[in-house]
Every structure is written in C-alpha cells, then in structure tokens.
Simulated scan of single mutants.
Amino acid sequence: MTSWLLLGATEGGLFDLDATLPLMAVQVVLLTFILNALFFRPVGRVVEEREGYITTSRAEAKQKLAQVERLEADLAAQLKEARLATQKLIQDAEQDCDRLYREALAAATADANASREQARREIDAERESAFKQLQGDAEKLGDLIVDRLLAAK
C-alpha cells in the first residue's frame, strides 16, 4: 500500500496512514453519537431530573423550615402570653383568697366581739339581778333577825 502523504513512511512502520485512520475516526464519531443517543442523553435526563427534584425538594424543605421557625416563634410567643396570663390569674386568685380570708376574719372577729359583748351584758344583767335578789334576801333576813331579837326580849 502506498501512503497518502508521501512523507517517507514505509508500510508496517509505527504509523500507517492509509484508509484505516479515517475509517477508525468515522467509527469513533459514529460510536460517540450512538452512545450519546442511547446512553448519555437518557442518563443525562435522569441526572437532570434528579437534580431538579433535589433542587425543588431543597427549596420546599427551606420553605417548610422557615414556616416551622415562624410557627415555633408564634407558639413561643403564645406560650409566653399564656404563662403571663396564668401568673396574672394565679395572682388575682391569691389576692381574692386573701381578701376573702380577711373579710371572713373580720366578720368572725366582729361576730365574736358581738357575742362577747352580749355575754358580758347578760352576765352583768344576771349579776345585777342576783345582787338585787341578795339585797332583798339580806333585808328580809335582817328584818327577820331584828324581829326575832325584838320578840325575844
């Protein structure tokens, strides 16, 4: 065979520049197109779909995370308000309880004082009636003693 480029290369040497080189080049290009059409494009589409899915999933996850953070902040604020309201309610209940206790204590003290005063008046009245009765009895006894002494003389 003769060489295409008459560069002095002989047949069977290191480089043969005959019709096999362009044929191999055409085979490589053709194989590249076939592989690209059969394998690389579908794989590329799958990779792009997965990338899209990952991107959308990531965006959705970020949105959900932001929403969760907002909800968490709202719930924390509601919890704080509820705690403050509960503390206020407990404080009001304690004040009402203390006020009712003081009112009940004042009423009981007033009732006890009234009962004590009533008992003192009754005791004074009984003492006065007992004193009058004793005075009457003492006068009768004195008159009886005087009558007997006079009668004995």
Rank of each mutant, 00 (worst) to 15 (best):
L6Q: 11
L6A: 08
G13Y: 00
L17R: 01
D18T: 06
A19E: 09
A19Y: 11
A19V: 10
T20I: 09
T20C: 09
L23W: 06
L23I: 11
M24F: 10
A25I: 12
V29Y: 02
L31Y: 09
I34R: 01
A37E: 07
L38C: 02
R41W: 08
P42W: 00
V47K: 11
E48F: 14
R50C: 07
E51A: 15
S57N: 10
L65G: 12
A66G: 06
A66Y: 04
L75R: 02
A76F: 02
L79I: 05
L79H: 08
A85L: 01
K88S: 01
L89P: 00
L89G: 04
L89A: 14
Q91S: 06
D92Y: 00
D96F: 05
C97D: 12
C97Y: 15
D98G: 05
L100C: 06
A104Q: 13
A104F: 06
A104N: 13
A108S: 11
T109A: 08
A110Y: 06
A110S: 15
A114I: 09
E117V: 13
A119E: 07
R120N: 09
R120S: 10
R121D: 11
R121L: 15
E122M: 06
A125D: 14
E126N: 12
G136L: 04
D137Y: 06
A138H: 07
E139P: 02
I145H: 12
I145Y: 06
V146Q: 15
V146N: 08
L150N: 11
A151C: 04
A152E: 11
